[in-house]
Amino acid sequence: MLAGFSVSVIAFIITDIRQANRQAKIVQKLDYLFGKVTGNPDTITRSREMLRLLESIGIYDTVENRDYLLSHIEASFFDSNNVIRTQQDGRIVKDSLLMGLRGALRMETIWQGDKLITFFLKSGGD
C-alpha cells in the first residue's frame, strides 16, 4: 500500500518535472515568435515575420500575451485530435486557431516527442 503510494508520488513528480521542462523550452521559443532572436539572418527575418503576423491580430509582446501563447501551445500539445500530419522524420504537426483581439491565425506547432521544434503562422491573406 505504502509502496504503491510512493510510486504514485514519484510518477507525479516526474510528470511535473517533465511538464516544467517542456514549459521552459516553450518559453524560450516564444522569443522566436516575438521577433527576439539573433544569429542567422534568415532566422531573424522569419522571426520578425511571425511577430508581424501576431501584431496584425493584436497580439503584442507583453507578459500577458506570452502567458496566453504558452497556454495555447500547451493546450495544442495535449489535444489529441489536432494532428494534421506526421513528417518523414517523425515530427508531428498540430493545428490550432490562435485568436487575437483583431482576428485569428492558423498556428501549426511542430513537435518531436514532447519537444516543441517550431511554429508556422498562417493567415488567410495578407
Binding site: 524560450q28 521559443k29 522566436y32 532572436v37 544569429g39 542567422n40 532566422t43 521544434i117
Partner: peptide
C-alpha cells in the same frame, strides 16, 4: 541532420559546426 532551430552554421575544413536555439 536536425534537432532544433539552427541559429548558425559554419564550415571549417571537413567539419560543419551548428548552433541551435535550445
Amino acid at each position: 541532420y536536425g534537432k532544433d532551430l539552427i541559429t548558425q552554421a559554419a564550415v571549417e575544413g571537413e567539419k560543419l559546426y551548428l548552433n541551435f536555439m535550445d
